[in-house]
Design a protein around this nucleic acid. Structure first.
Lengths: 185, 185
DNA sequence: CTTTGCATGTAAACCGTTACATGATTTT
DNA sequence: AAAATCATGTAACGGTTTACATGCAAAG
């Protein structure tokens, strides 16, 4: 009944629990391997948020130690299922944020030696190529049910390939302009 | 001589001052129109940071009131020019962050009614289409010197067009799968 | 004369990372 | 025996947004 509007981080945790990641540790692992390029989370958020969600009655924790090692396994309550489904409904404002210092440097490149600008563009392009390659390498390991996790990963691959190409074409463009009006030596 | 390693926000401000945006207000304006989709900044950051940069000797402020309206105009000192050039040199780690709640919802879409998933994908696609259109509409106004600002804007346009296509193709894929294995009614 | 734009600033709240601390279990 | 992995948690720090507060100037 409570509409305590959850933070995206809280919703991520609810979703992960429904996917079967039931301890804080497991949630962190899955985010790190399959959502890292579009969402990150740290233990400093996870454990306090798990407590808050339990207090709010959206999840229920059960102590299940492995030997002498403490371990709390969470599951969604009915209210938690409802809250997650409400978020998943196709409406509402969605967080979308990009912070790209590479673009910022390009933005301020006026007056720089074209060689330096080109080196920068090349480095940025190489970075997304490396990310694409890394994501391609983990694709075979995705065995989550449903199309979501695989499609998200494929987004990451396609996006980083697109980025690689864009930065490469930017490099060509700057090289052409520098060739047409070469820097004085 | 001091290597007080600046935050990206501080460097953004230095860059904007070199581009001729010399008051806090003007810096905010330019970021909002031309860098908004890959970098944001608020007055709550700008004014304290301008003071810090002045104390650090990287910028110098001069009071230039317009009538009875207070106004402080900043310019780069030699140390400020150097600091900016150091950052612009083609090396060093660059902040890159994406936060996309739309992808997160896709990630957790397992078990949802395909109609809902499709509606979500359509909404996300429409959102990037609207951003692309908005960026296209401001392109003719870009009259900054050098290729950087225009290229950054063109990145935004191309990126949002790519996003639009990707989400549309995701929609088709889900629709196909739902058609092949339709939901029970 | 009213609205919009110019211009500056602060305080509180919020969000997130990093570093630290602890200790058990499993693998090498 | 050592290293890696499992597992939980906190405190401090830092960055960012939001809301608030103020007031002049220009344009309608």
């Amino acid at each position: 009944m409570s509409t305590t509007s959850l933070s995206p981080t809280a919703r991520l945790i609810l979703g992960m629990i429904r996917m079967g990641r039931r301890t804080g540790y497991e949630i962190k692992q899955l985010v790190d391997v399959s959502a890292r390029f579009f969402w990150t989370i740290s233990y400093g958020q996870i454990y306090p948020e798990l407590k808050r969600l339990e207090e709010a009655g959206l999840i229920a924790g059960e102590s299940q130690p492995t030997g002498g090692r403490t371990r709390t396994v969470y599951s969604l309550t009915e209210a938690g299922e409802t809250a997650l489904d409400e978020w998943l409904a196709p409406d509402g404002e969605l967080v979308w944020e990009l912070r790209d210092e590479g673009l910022l440097k390009l933005f301020f490149s006026e007056g720089r030696d074209p060689e330096d600008v080109i080196a920068h563009l090349r480095a940025v392009s190489a970075r997304s190529e490396a990310v694409a390659e890394q994501l391609r390498s983990i694709r075979p390991d995705v065995d989550e049910p449903g199309p979501g996790p695989l499609m998200a990963l494929e987004f990451g691959i396609a996006f980083n390939e697109w980025l690689t190409d864009w930065w490469r074409s930017a490099e060509e463009r700057i090289a052409r302009e520098a060739g047409a009006a070469p820097a004085r030596r």
